[in-house]
Amino acid sequence: MTALIKKKRHSIHIFDYPEDVSVIISIDNLFLGPALGGTRMRHYTSKEDAILDVKQLSHAMTFKSAIHGLNQGGGKCVIYNPKSLTFNEITPFFIDAINALHGDFIAGNDMGISVEMLNKIHQESPYLFNRHGNALDPSIFTAESAFLCIEYIQSNILKKAKSDVTIKVQGLGHTGNALCQLLLDANYQVQGFDIVQTTLKPFLGHPSFTPLNKETWFETKCDIFSPCAAGGVITSKTIHNLNCSVICGIANNPCESYATISQLNTKNILYIPDFISNGGGVIYASGIYHGQSVANIRKKIHSISQLLESLDLKSSNIPYDTAVKIIHQRLSES
């Protein structure tokens, strides 16, 4: 059974199944093409929390697809799974739900669901991003786009040697780990923090890596702060403890509100919108869905420097505002 909640051009589809499982798909819009987004399976305290999460995430996907010039709308799927069934047990429900939307939503992987899980079932639906066969992990490309943004900032804004630039990475999970490795390989100085200390192990002992502790990690001085964990880490309360020049990371919605983004500008902290810096994953997913080669997809990701140029980062304008204007212009023309 599906419940449809309509609000302007936004719709939420709630598919309820046995064992209290619900597959919840949020379509933010279809202006530019089928909605594309990952599928998240994590613990939610209630179905209402899951619905709120999927709505916010699908809106972020609209911004990502539009700003990067993709012919995709914004969407997201979360699986409410209070009895902690395995993905294998839930797979029939998941496939049934995405097939029921007849191509309005294209599903990728996200938190709690690996690309390997989707590769095993890629033939079960034409509405999986990897419908043509086994795909690589999109998080590799998410890390790559964030890295390219940092490279642009280093050479055009900070204008310092890489070995003199310190980047603080918060969250060394799958994608943050990949970004950290790229930064160290490029000779940056990297500070790392994660509440799960074992994620730091691969980097301990590296001469350019400094682990941070939970008491002081946030206020530790750096050139670039790269949030790569859950969103909302920069708030009206925590912003006063920031000690950096630039924020550029992978986390979705690292700022709790637009007011916080505006405060960053007042504090002369440059904020690269997350939907730009973490866009590599959706660029890859869209490209693979449409049958493009990895080489051509990477060319698209590497054009991110041109996008940053269009934001005029050296002006007094808030880059987020400029980016949103570009997005609204593209959506209005569709």
Rank of each mutant, 00 (worst) to 15 (best):
R40F: 01
A295Y: 12
C248I: 02
H10G: 09
L32G: 09
N213P: 14
N99D: 15
S226I: 03
L308K: 04
N252L: 04
D16I: 13
N317L: 05
E309N: 15
H174T: 13
K76E: 07
T91K: 13
L212K: 07
H13F: 15
N119K: 13
L172T: 02
A97C: 06
Y80I: 12
S46L: 08
P82E: 05
E116C: 06
N99T: 06
G133I: 06
H132K: 08
S303I: 09
K8L: 06
S139C: 09
I195P: 01
V78A: 10
D20A: 14
I318N: 15
G205P: 13
P227G: 02
I261R: 07
Q72G: 04
I326C: 01
P92Q: 14
R40S: 05
P227E: 04
D223R: 00
N71S: 14
I283S: 00
G205V: 09
I153N: 02
I167D: 00
Q292K: 12
P319H: 01
G280D: 08
T322E: 10
P254N: 01
K6H: 08
I24L: 14
T199Y: 10
A35V: 03
G38W: 09
H302R: 14
A97L: 09
P227T: 03
P92M: 11
F203K: 05
S26Q: 12
N268T: 06
T175Q: 04
V196A: 11
N81S: 08
Q154C: 15
R40T: 08
A229L: 10
I304E: 08
D20L: 12
C180N: 03
I12R: 15
V282E: 03
A230E: 07
S46W: 11
T266K: 13
G205C: 10
D137H: 08
T198F: 07
I272Q: 05
E48I: 11
I113L: 13
V196D: 15
D223L: 00
L270Q: 02
D185W: 01
